[in-house]
Design a protein around this nucleic acid. Structure first.
Lengths: 198, 198
DNA sequence: GTTTACATACCGACCAGTCGGTCTGTTTGA
DNA sequence: TCAAACAGACCGACTGGTCGGTATGTAAAC
């Protein structure tokens, strides 16, 4: 056990140990004893801070979603052209990816859980709607300013978000025929060609 | 137990029972006894036809991948314009989706497994490369015929495939703000605007 | 009479969660 | 000021149910 910590710090410590195991093994294959080992604590300590395995992982998801919050902050992109903002969001996503590939691996597991667990799915929908509506508002701005064609904003937002999600395939398949940066840059440009007025 | 069947039929019967449970519960939460019940057979029968749980699910994946084979048959689209072929592939995917939403749910679980299981991942890569190279050959045809811009074919193929994969989100989130057909049609048109020479 | 295709009862490894206990502060009151 | 009383944080051996897999039986098919 590592020194004195506040309750909150200790809980995060456990979450981070759990995340390390979780991305490698997935929920079902993760043993509470694995987390015990990884954290350097004990069974009792883990169960002192979290009611059970499920609750620990729900907390883990929240902790993890928090990290994605910045992308959704409105005002963050104030004053820029809509096209530039979209490219910024893409760049931001790639940066998160490069810094923390593990999270993208965990994401697959997360969606798999979401397909079966109501509470997890709700968290997923919240994330999804947040990103979609953020992108939509950028699209609407672009249309208003005459930058963009009169496209269906929700449909287009979904398409753009989905393209960013596609980064997952790179992790899964270790595709090295080209870099993620290049892919995102290239595909964004291609899509924007269908969105921006020529 | 249902009548006399050939060995092959019985094996498929078991696979289909397994699939039904699998899409609802995922691999880890699926009990062999669930499959016993669903199939109306017995433990002995299941283990007579399949060595163990893992082998059953590897077979299930193969069975499932077979259904996607048609999309990858070259020559299937002979004589058409490249743009039309791409739209055909999209339509074909949507049709599969409408006929069998379960498969798309299972797909998420499949990718989650692929991220941890070497053998599953290899099957995934085979599927991925098959679709990608099929789409790529259509793109090359389009470029050759002067229909398309001089785009990076692999990058573009990945983008198009990924967009079709995006159908998964509709299943996951029960998004009914618009139909899958409309989404695929709309997004394909937008992307093609960035690919086709104007 | 031997193989195929099952059915049924059973085994035992495994693991989430429990619980009696400890150790280190912190508060109180004489 | 010191010791009694308590509380929060943590330890780890243990258990009880669960579930993949197996052993054994058996009826039809060949």
């Amino acid at each position: 056990m590592t020194e004195n910590r506040t309750k909150a710090e200790r809980k995060v410590e456990i979450l981070e140990a759990a995340l390390n195991i979780f991305v490698k093994k997935g929920y079902a294959e993760t043993r509470m004893d694995d987390i015990v080992q990884e954290s350097g604590l004990s069974k009792g300590a883990i169960y002192w801070h979290y009611k059970n395995k499920r609750e620990l992982f729900l907390s883990l998801i929240d902790h993890w979603l928090d990290q994605f919050a910045p992308i959704m902050s409105p005002g963050y992109h104030a004053g820029k052209k809509a096209e530039v903002i979209l490219k910024d969001i893409a760049r931001f996503t790639v940066r998160i990816f490069n810094r923390n590939r593990n999270w993208f691996l965990a994401e697959i597991e997360f969606w798999a859980m979401a397909s079966r667990d109501e509470e997890v799915r709700e968290k997923g929908i919240a994330l999804y709607n947040g990103i979609i509506s953020e992108i939509e508002s950028v699209l609407r701005k672009g249309i208003r300013k005459g930058e963009f064609l009169e496209i269906d904003t929700r449909q287009t937002a979904l398409m753009l978000m989905n393209n960013l999600q596609g980064i997952i395939w790179f992790v899964l398949f270790k595709d090295e025929t080209f870099s993620v940066d290049d892919y995102i840059k290239g595909s964004m440009e291609m899509m924007l060609r269908g969105i921006v007025k020529s």
